Measured scan of single mutants.
Amino acid sequence: MTVLPKDIPGDSLKVTVGTANGKPGDTVTVPVTFADVAKMKNVGTCNFYLGYDASLLEVVSVDAGPIVKNAAVNFSSSASNGTISFLFLDNTITDELITADGVFANIKFKLKSVTAKTTTPVTFKDGGAFGDGTMSKIASVTKTNGSVTIDP
């Protein structure tokens, strides 16, 4: 049996954390987006972790974005102690894959008090994996961190 590389060099799934701005007490939304989904033969499963400074940001909610089908079954998240974990699994293993680019999740943060303008990162942590529509590992994932700026 011969195994051929399935990824064209330079191609990767792009996962990007967005940015937001606000004043202390505001609730802002930071999107997590996927790009080049079709090039990577869709997404059938993924789990990953984001870190944030809990002294500056309070997670209000984490909701599935419009590219997630049947989110009540296929999407899960949790947030505590400065870490947000995400889990997606197409429970049907074929019919509810992520097949389009767009917003995977929206994180709502309540901004805490600061004395001066502060930009705090929302960054990928170690761990996690992504699988394509056949549940094979997506070897190349380009992750881009985001941030939230609090301006009193």
Score class of each variant (00 low, 15 high):
T2A: 13
V3D: 12
L4D: 13
P5S: 07
P5K: 05
K6V: 12
K6R: 08
K6F: 13
K6Q: 11
D7L: 12
I8M: 09
I8V: 12
P9V: 10
P9W: 10
D11P: 11
D11L: 09
S12K: 08
S12F: 09
L13Q: 09
L13T: 09
K14A: 13
V15F: 01
V15H: 06
V15M: 07
T16H: 10
T16D: 07
T16V: 11
T16M: 12
V17R: 00
V17D: 05
G18H: 13
G18S: 10
T19A: 13
T19W: 14
T19Y: 13
A20I: 11
N21K: 11
N21Y: 11
N21E: 11
K23E: 10
K23R: 10
K23H: 09
K23S: 11
P24A: 10
P24Y: 12
D26C: 13
D26Q: 11
D26F: 09
V28E: 10
V28C: 08
V28H: 09
T29N: 14
T29E: 12
V30G: 08
V30T: 10
P31H: 11
P31E: 10
P31K: 12
V32N: 06
V32Y: 06
T33Q: 09
T33I: 11
T33H: 10
A35D: 06
A35I: 11
A35Q: 14
D36V: 13
D36A: 13
D36G: 13
V37E: 04
V37M: 06
V37A: 13
V37P: 12
V37F: 09
K39A: 12
M40C: 14
K41Y: 10
N42V: 08
N42Y: 13
V43N: 00
V43Q: 08
V43G: 10
V43S: 09
G44Q: 01
G44D: 03
T45P: 01
T45V: 13
C46P: 01
N47S: 02
N47R: 00
N47C: 03
F48N: 05
F48I: 04
Y49F: 05
Y49W: 03
L50F: 08
L50E: 08
L50C: 09
G51S: 10
Y52R: 08
Y52Q: 10
Y52N: 09
D53E: 07
D53R: 11
D53T: 11
A54C: 08
A54V: 12
S55C: 12
S55L: 08
L56M: 10
L57V: 10
L57Y: 10
L57M: 12
E58M: 14
E58H: 08
V59A: 07
V60G: 08
V62L: 09
D63E: 09
D63I: 13
D63R: 13
D63V: 09
D63P: 09
A64I: 08
A64N: 11
G65H: 11
G65S: 10
P66D: 13
V68E: 12
V68Y: 07
V68D: 10
K69N: 12
K69V: 14
K69I: 13
K69G: 08
K69M: 07
N70Y: 07
N70D: 08
A72M: 14
A72T: 14
A72L: 13
A72V: 14
V73T: 07
V73A: 05
V73G: 02
V73S: 05
N74G: 02
F75A: 00
S76N: 10
S76R: 02
S76C: 07
S76V: 04
S77I: 14
S78W: 15
A79V: 15
A79I: 15
N81E: 15
N81F: 15
N81W: 15
N81I: 15
N81S: 15
G82M: 15
G82P: 15
G82C: 15
T83V: 15
S85I: 01
S85H: 02
S85N: 02
F86G: 03
F86D: 01
F86L: 05
F86K: 03
L87G: 00
L87D: 01
F88W: 02
F88A: 01
L89C: 03
L89P: 02
L89A: 00
D90C: 00
D90W: 04
D90L: 00
N91V: 05
T92M: 04
I93R: 02
T94Q: 01
D95N: 05
D95I: 03
E96Y: 02
E96H: 00
L97W: 15
L97N: 03
L97S: 04
L97V: 04
I98M: 08
I98Q: 02
I98T: 15
T99C: 05
A100K: 04
D101W: 00
D101S: 14
D101M: 01
D101F: 04
G102N: 01
G102W: 03
G102R: 03
V103I: 06
F104P: 00
F104S: 04
F104W: 05
A105P: 01
A105L: 04
A105F: 14
A105G: 07
N106K: 07
I107V: 07
I107S: 01
I107H: 00
I107Q: 00
I107C: 01
K108G: 04
K108A: 05
F109W: 08
F109R: 02
F109H: 02
F109S: 03
F109Q: 03
K110H: 03
K110A: 04
L111W: 09
K112F: 01
K112H: 04
V114C: 06
V114M: 09
T115L: 05
A116D: 06
A116K: 08
A116I: 06
A116F: 05
K117C: 05
K117M: 06
K117N: 06
T118W: 05
T118G: 05
T119H: 07
T119K: 14
T120Y: 04
T120S: 07
T120F: 02
P121M: 04
P121A: 06
V122N: 07
V122Q: 05
V122P: 04
V122K: 00
T123G: 07
T123Y: 05
F124D: 02
K125F: 03
K125V: 01
D126K: 15
D126C: 15
G127F: 00
G127Q: 04
G128W: 06
G128A: 02
G128I: 00
A129L: 01
A129H: 00
A129M: 00
F130D: 00
G131N: 00
D132Y: 04
D132C: 04
G133D: 04
G133E: 04
G133M: 04
G133C: 07
T134E: 06
M135W: 01
M135Q: 03
M135F: 05
K137Q: 01
K137L: 00
K137T: 02
I138V: 08
A139C: 04
S140D: 03
S140W: 02
S140I: 15
S140P: 10
S140L: 08
S140R: 13
K143H: 01
K143P: 01
T144L: 07
T144Y: 07
G146V: 05
G146M: 04
S147K: 05
V148E: 04
T149K: 14
T149L: 15
I150Y: 14
D151C: 15
D151L: 15
D151V: 15
D151Q: 14
P152I: 11
